[in-house]
Write a protein that binds this DNA or RNA. Structure first.
Lengths: 84, 84
DNA sequence: TTAATGATTAGACAAATGTCTAAATAAAAT
DNA sequence: ATTTTATTTAGACATTTGTCTAATCATTAA
């Protein structure tokens, strides 16, 4: 829960998730879309992975990142308790 | 959007929201439930208010805080784009 | 009108965060 | 074999964050 909110609390990381909505992508392809360095994006991807929001598969020298939406259920569950 | 995720990215603030689910409460009554000082809780309430998650009404020397769930719609809207 | 109560503001400080460059690792290409 | 390409790790650094105590503001009670 903590890791999830932490991961979502950054505009760049949220933008990465939106990017991955269009399909999996390599770390490099993701990094190209942002004005930040590759290590910075790599770090963001790590936080997203820790929260379970993305998964990664190594393909040769590339690492492909894939959106994992099932984690959102956790968030929806938390929100649900506030339903009036 | 930023203020919303920021406000939610803290366990104490989330606990305050859950507390207010049971009904409005004064700043002091809220502070009593946590091990933190009154100024700290006041600061958390301020961040929640900035995000629109709570509203405050001054009643004499007290300040009553009320949960505002309508802001969650914004969050649900953001989540919706990821629906498969 | 003075003192007490409820709450916020101001300022300090340690810890966490987001960014960078340089270095390391791993795979592919020459 | 060597070099290039893709990515991560390590370490540094400025900014933000969460907390505190002390001081201030506002309202109520004596």
């Amino acid at each position: 829960m903590n890791a999830l909110f932490k991961a979502l609390n950054d505009p760049t990381r949220r933008a990465i998730l939106e990017r991955l909505r269009g399909g999996p992508a390599t770390a490099g392809a993701i990094a190209e879309q942002f004005q930040f360095s590759a290590p910075t994006i790599s770090h963001h991807l790590d936080l997203l992975r820790q929260a379970g929001l993305v998964t990664s598969q190594k393909q040769g020298q590339f690492v492909v990142y894939t959106l994992n939406m099932t984690v959102f259920d956790e968030l929806l569950g938390w929100l649900y308790q506030f339903k009036s």
